[in-house]
Design a protein around this nucleic acid. Structure first.
Lengths: 295, 295
DNA sequence: AAGCGCCATACTATTTTTATATGGCAATTA
DNA sequence: TAATTGCCATATAAAAATAGTATGGCGCTT
């Protein structure tokens, strides 16, 4: 059986006539007659009763006709949905997001979802290392990370914006109360909660280097494994933190606030990271296009 | 697009290799490569990424693969169900039944349904004339009627059994109390409820003819249009009826009982009636076969 | 560098499908 | 009653689609 036979069959069923169907199909009558006979042979079933003035469906023929209509419907939806997936209108998009990028990521995802509502979005949060592993295994398509000027990921990147790195504190732990910015020397001996320095993408390295240049070793009271933990420690009054300003802004009710370091205007850059694949899925392409529009 | 292309596509998707699929399909490699290219052209979509050691599905390809599996499934069920309909295992069977045949009809239908549970049964009750009209219009397939020796229906028939025609009465209207059978002369002047005599299939004609032969005109107190009505009238004490014995036996709680007419052993024959169509639907064929087995 | 396995392409051979011509059949019309 | 018409089926020739053969490029292994 093939589509042509089904197509001819359906046309004959609708025209109630072989020659009529042939006219509709713009082919001669014998081919239609022949394909019909082949179909009947293959199924081992009489599909039409041949009458004087045409043909009419048997019960088995009616059954086949109903199924054939469904079949053509499925065929159309199949082709459409394959094209949609190819165009990126439909499909799956799997994103990895580090804690610091949740704000910018959700906003971009929201806009993307409005534009491509049929795409299923998958997101996971995690450390940059874990996310990069998943990216290389193909389990994630695009990551929201922060750029590291010293290192390249060996991947495609796009900077989404910038975010000043500032000290984070409660009033009780403020090293320079009453001042809008904290001079670096004010940090001497101040207990600090920083991202663990062996984390390749920590923000802490910049600050500790700066302290050493200022002639002292910072008092790192607590090494945190991730930014939410660091926020918690600072909020608990454990010490002063050093984080992108936007993270603190995302905690409006918190007793924590930020101040820049007077002599050191460090910045962090939210970036998108993806693998450079010429056969990138349509969803990924569309998502990257949208990100490009927004920057 | 045609089934061959889909079939090749699915084989390639499963083998993750064009040449591997070609081996599975027992064809050379170039045809598979070519049909795949045609399919991709027609959809305007890249379905596979060609790698060093084979091919792998793109997202659009995965989408097509899932749909294609469904499609093959539908194809199989379509062929199966068409064959089932043809064989009479599936489909519709529309029966017409006169009141007197309800007992025998339901019993036959029950057995039929056990054997062919997938067939949808439609039944209607009515007068023989109405049912025959529906039969000729093709709205019913098989009728349960009673045979008329004088008339032929011009249709195929099968006798299902026999059923003595007897007088029906209450104790109050019994023309021959204490006797097992009623002599014909005892019916003189007895009020009777009979099927209307102009009904071609009424049982009454036999009895009224017999009365006239016995020298009197029967006292037909009420002409009934159908057997249930006649039963009601007899049950209400309006008079004596004349009906197939089985009808009364089907009313076990009723105060009505039957007695044969002494000199007149009339019988009624339940029959199946259908049109002689060589392209009879499978369900009808199977039903008639079952009826043949039972007689 | 040679060999191997993969896919793509060019070309030929085969199979399938189509179109043309024709015949049987039943119903309508002259 | 004979002729015509419209229907479907069949036989044959033409056209199209499909398969097979030969070959080349490419990346990987040996």
């Amino acid at each position: 059986m093939n589509f042509k036979q089904l197509e001819y069959f359906a046309a004959v069923a609708e025209a109630k006539s072989i020659s009529g169907a042939a006219r509709e199909l713009h082919v001669a009558q014998p081919p239609v007659s022949r394909q019909l006979a082949l179909l009947e042979d293959e199924l081992g079933v009489t599909l039409f009763l041949r009458t004087n003035k045409g043909v009419e469906l048997t019960e088995a023929g009616q059954c086949l006709y109903q199924h054939s209509r469904q079949m053509f419907q499925s065929l159309r939806t199949m082709a459409d949905s394959v094209r949609d997936v190819d165009a990126g209108v439909r499909g799956q998009l799997k994103l990895g997001i580090i804690y610091s990028d949740v704000q910018i990521a959700t906003s971009l995802m929201q806009e993307y979802h409005e534009r491509y509502p049929q795409v299923e979005l998958y997101v996971r949060m995690g450390s940059p290392g874990d996310l990069l592993d998943d990216l290389s295994r193909g389990e994630l398509h695009v990551l929201f990370l922060r750029s590291q000027s010293e290192r390249s990921y060996g991947l495609r990147e796009r900077v989404l914006g910038e975010d000043p790195l500032e000290l984070v504190m409660r009033a009780e732990t403020d090293p320079a109360p009453g001042q809008a910015a904290v001079p670096i020397r004010a940090l001497r001996d101040v207990p600090m909660c920083l991202l663990r320095s062996d984390d390749l993408w920590g923000y802490s390295r910049d600050l500790t280097d700066e302290c050493r240049r200022a002639g002292f070793t910072p008092n790192v009271a607590c090494h945190c494994y991730d930014t939410p933990m660091e926020m918690q420690m600072v909020q608990a009054g454990f010490g002063v933190g050093f984080l992108p300003k936007s993270i603190v802004e995302a905690h409006p009710g918190s007793p924590v606030y930020t101040k820049p370091v007077l002599e050191f205007a460090a910045k962090s850059y939210p970036i998108l990271v993806w693998e450079d694949d010429p056969y990138q899925s349509g969803c990924v392409k569309r998502f990257l296009e949208l990100a490009a529009e927004r920057t």
